[in-house]
Write a protein that binds this DNA or RNA. Structure first.
Lengths: 230, 230
DNA sequence: GGCATAGTTTGATCTCCATCGAAGCGTGAT
DNA sequence: ATCACGCTTCGATGGAGATCAAACTATGCC
């Protein structure tokens, strides 16, 4: 069947790369434009590190991703805007074709509410919190880059988080992370991680074993809201 | 491990449909906008009829195709312009990362110059035309959304295209579609289709049989340029 | 009716690849 | 040095799906 057809280039190869659920999740996670590490992407895709590594190699080989080694981390990103445009187009078709909403399910519901995204909080609570930060000028958003606002340092200091200390690592203090359950974004970066630490340390919520779910207790939730949503 | 985490639309499902070589060949064959029978598509894909039938059922189920029974034939077609746009976008990525296509080839050259993209014109001519429209304010671009500019209606009316009539369908009048041969975009939507209709009606160009190629005649080309590029 | 053509369905086969555990290899910290 | 951590490679397993032949259905033709 050597059939010399193939109008344009190898469309099937590219599409099949996106056609695997794990890889599709990784790619959508990278749609923020931010670069993510292999571990973060593994978590986002719901697979183990070796599996993720294999997928990343394939995506690299297919030219969809670029990588930057930094210390012992490897930051993966979409190789260019063309790839992002393609993903948008596919999303467009997928959205128009089928509401296809899989039943939310009980597990999904709690996941939507609050879950861990690598090392920070994601889900509705996280999105609300992020919105509040921006509205109050604690955090300033410029497109997809977010930074600590003028009121930020004192705001977090009052809540027991020393933002100055977070700047030590190479990691950005603030980063924006797209939420799959809501169409909005939440706070990642060192600050996002610190906030989650605080939530767990205060025992406002606990992590379910072997799951990304973060389960708030009733009074934990109100404490959290009083602290970070007001 | 149940990590079902769809980002909303099921992008992996759609992409995996395109990700099979046989299906990809069928879809690209349908990019001409014409409807083809199952047998023709089987031939185009290089598989037997049963296999093709199975693929067509999957594509139907995924919402990428529509079908019309006529006598003992079943005519399959792309379910809409959105699907065509997605395919073009995938082609764009595949072309840009293309591991050195064997050679441009004569067929490929004419495709780059002018071809059909579902129901509108694509290729260098189409991109130049789109650029001219935007530059002259006939069409206004805002990011990826394009709309008819203030001068648009009279511009097209003078050229025999009634833009008011185009608004009747649910389809957008203007739409932006990525070109895989050039890295720019061209005009799709009802208006894009109307322009192609005009080009063919005036016999400035004719469509090659069983191909996406649009072949301009020498004087047809100058007439086209005088009309839509000036 | 009877035959031919267009398509689908069924069932069985076979290949490919996603997945994970374990081991290997860097880099950074102590 | 030594340990910890991030990531990749290796090897084995399992499952999904692409494929075709043959049987079946439906339509058109005579």
């Amino acid at each position: 069947m050597p059939e010399g057809l193939q109008d344009g280039p190898n469309i099937a190869l590219i599409a099949s790369l996106v056609g695997d659920p794990a890889r599709a999740n990784m790619l959508t996670a990278l749609m923020t434009g931010a670069a993510l590490t292999a571990s973060e992407l593994a978590l986002e895709a719901g697979v183990t590190l070796p599996t993720a590594s294999s997928h990343l190699a394939k995506l690299m080989d297919g030219g969809l991703l670029s990588v930057a080694s930094e210390g012992r981390h490897r930051y993966y990103a979409l190789s260019g805007p063309q790839v992002a445009a393609m993903l948008e187009a596919i999303m467009g078709v997928a959205a128009s074709v089928g509401p296809k909403r899989v039943r939310p399910g009980p597990r999904e519901a709690t996941m939507r509410e609050a879950r861990v995204c690598y090392d920070h909080l994601a889900g509705e609570h996280a999105v609300k919190m992020m919105d509040g930060f921006v509205e109050r000028g604690v955090i300033v958003r410029d497109g997809r880059t977010v930074t600590l606002g003028p009121l930020g340092a004192s705001y977090f200091a009052m809540r027991g988080i020393d933002t100055a200390n977070l700047g030590t690592s190479r990691r950005p203090v603030c980063r924006d992370c797209l939420d799959w359950s809501v169409r909005r974004s939440h706070l990642a970066g060192a600050l996002g991680a610190a906030i989650l630490d605080r939530i767990l340390a205060e025992k406002w919520a606990r992590r379910e074993k072997d799951s990304r779910v973060v389960a708030f207790s009733p009074k934990g939730r109100t404490a959290f809201e009083r602290t970070f949503l007001a």
